[in-house]
Amino acid sequence: MNFYKLLKYDLKNGFRVGGLKLMIIILMTLAFCLDFYLRKDIVYMVDPLTPPGTWMDYLFYIFAGIKEYTPSITEEFIFPIKWILIHLFILYSTLYYPHRDLSSLGLNVLVRTKGRLAWWLSKSIWNISYVLTCYISIFLTIIIFCLVANEPISLEITPMFVNDLLDAGSPFDTFPSYLASIILLMPMFISIVLNLVQMTLGLFIKPLYSFGMMAVILLASAYFLNPFFIGNYAMPIRSEYVIENGLQATTGVMLSALIMTLAFLIGSFYFKRYDILAEE
């Protein structure tokens, strides 16, 4: 079986296994949009007019994360539920298929594949494609919600929402257009990295424990504002354009590229000697 046939097989089967989960992601996005829409109404209740939220505002609300937490006995740490929920659900969506394909019918495909590297590469491409599809679904769902709710579809960020609704504690009054690209790309990029790392870790430990490790990384990233906790880059609220001690997206991209390369290489080397019969 050549590589293109294998990739076609993975894309077809992987998306079939994850189809229902994509629907759930769409439903979750709709709930987040409704939440933002209603919250705006409550927060600006006394204003004569509720300000409209742009497409980018909705996206920012979903992927914002939380502002830096300063540990104190008088201030509780509240984890960012929307951010955790969406990232963990995408991680869960890609967890099952590669693992399932190492048993049953998938083993026959692996035997017919010329070299294990092709199998690993195909799974990695499927993984990236699936995460990209999840994000495209989120983007499209927000567009549809904006159309239905009569909200403007634009890349503008409404400055008043950043502190009033996202509680960012930002000292800035305006936000550059770079921030829109960070909101659009960084959560997606970090999600791809985490999903690939999870797939690689799944070769060394049980997939459920690998999912657990990703959950720990995400929670630790929410807790610490630290450039080495990769989840920080998936929180646009911690960008240098929002807070003074914020993180640079370029550092995040470089760190992510390094981790992604390492995850792929370690996975492919280890998979060459991986005992697939033990998995069966």
Partner: peptide
Amino acid sequence: NRIAVILVPFFLILVLHYSRTFLA
């Protein structure tokens, strides 16, 4: 699916946790 057996309850509780936001 063994993974779903363990993770579905976890996600249900997270969804319940998130639903608090509509009662804010």
